[in-house]
């Protein structure tokens, strides 16, 4: 098992390296931030001078090696746009990102999974129809629209929740629900399918024949087996919740790394984008490894296959 983990970690390091290299070069294909930094009236010579001062006139390979060298010393560098250490810029956003991702995940799990189970157990009934309509609503509205509707309803008209920003648990509610709605639908549908699949298996029929109630059968046997695909999906969603919350963060003025990443891409603040990608991909890979280990725990057949 330890060797397995070590091998996976090595593979993960290679994957991260791949990602960071791709991002490094793709970003630099699209120019550098010099033009965004200078005043509108700057002359070509002034721009060239600033570009030189910032080091963007060096060959790409030199910049790349320099970056890797810094990275090897755990130095993420200094943002040329904000003139501050990159770790400070990213780290000050992390708590907000974690809070929003956790809020959205909790919302999605506590609504999505029970909904999915209910939809499977009461398949074809009114309950399923009602639930699926509700669940699908979360997946069929652009968040930039539902977000502003939420703000107008709960913030402006009812005064229940703060309209924007990040002070207090109350301001976490709306962004979590709007962001979680998408994941909720995914969880519900995946759970429904997995549970349905398991319900069709012989062992369930056998258990039911032995007189076990549906509820008991679900709790004792089905959930455990139905968990595999659901766990996969949850792990997949976390990466998106971390840095993919761009639109929700923009609408609710939530200072997470999604918003930061977007602003940094548009500002060509390379080092900040790279640091975020590095962070998200490390989290993702850790979760992924945990998922694989969870697989083997749930279903011994899979062990050693990957």
């Amino acid at each position: 098992m330890r060797r397995y983990i070590a091998r996976r970690l090595l593979q993960a390091a290679i994957a991260t390296f791949l990602v960071i290299t791709i991002v490094f070069f793709v970003m630099r294909l699209s120019g550098d931030p010099t033009l965004l930094l200078v005043p509108e009236g700057a002359t070509a010579e002034q721009i060239a001078a600033l570009r030189h001062a910032l080091g963007f006139d060096r060959p790409l390979a030199v910049q790349y090696l320099g970056y890797l060298g810094d990275l090897a010393h755990f130095d993420l560098g200094q943002s040329l746009v904000q003139r501050a250490p990159v770790w400070l810029i990213v780290a000050s956003r992390l708590p907000y990102t974690m809070a929003l991702a956790a809020g959205a995940l909790v919302f999605a799990l506590v609504t999505g999974i029970p909904a999915g189970i209910a939809m499977a157990v009461w398949r074809g009934g009114v309950t399923e129809r009602l639930l699926s309509a509700l669940v699908l609503a979360g997946q069929s509205l652009p968040t930039f629209w539902s977000g502003i509707l939420f703000i107008l309803l709960f913030g402006v008209s009812l005064h229940w929740l703060p309209t924007s920003g990040a002070d207090g648990p109350a301001s976490l509610v709306m962004p979590s629900v709007v962001l979680g709605a998408l994941a909720m639908a995914t969880f519900a549908r995946m759970t429904r399918i997995s549970v349905l699949e398991e319900l069709g298996r012989d062992y369930v029929t056998a258990a039911r024949a032995r007189g076990l109630s549906m509820g008991a059968a679900v709790v004792r046997h089905v959930l455990r087996n139905a968990a595999i695909p659901v766990v996969t999906v949850v792990a997949l969603e976390v990466g998106n919740l971390l840095a993919g919350a761009v639109i929700v963060e923009t609408v609710f003025a939530w200072p997470g790394i999604g918003q930061l990443a977007m602003q940094s891409i548009f500002a060509r603040d390379f080092l900040v984008v790279q640091a975020i990608v590095l962070f998200v991909s490390m989290v993702y890979i850790a979760l992924n490894l945990a998922t694989d280990l969870a697989y083997s725990a749930i279903d011994p057949r899979i062990r050693g296959m990957a």
């Binding site: 593979q11 993960a12 290679i14 994957a15 991260t16 791949l18 990602v19 791709i22 991002v23 793709v26 970003m27 699209s30 997949l236 990466g239 998106n240 971390l242 840095a243 993919g244 761009v246 639109i247 999604g258 990443a261 977007m262 891409i265 548009f266 984008v273 990608v277 998200v280 991909s281 993702y284 890979i285 992924n288």
Partner: peptide
């Protein structure tokens, strides 16, 4: 592992980067 590398960057960021 390629899938991991792809998935570890949120799709919207990849899309924005590429479209940009």
């Amino acid at each position: 592992r390629f899938v991991d590398a792809m998935l570890s960057v949120p799709a919207i960021l990849l899309a924005v980067l590429t479209v940009a």
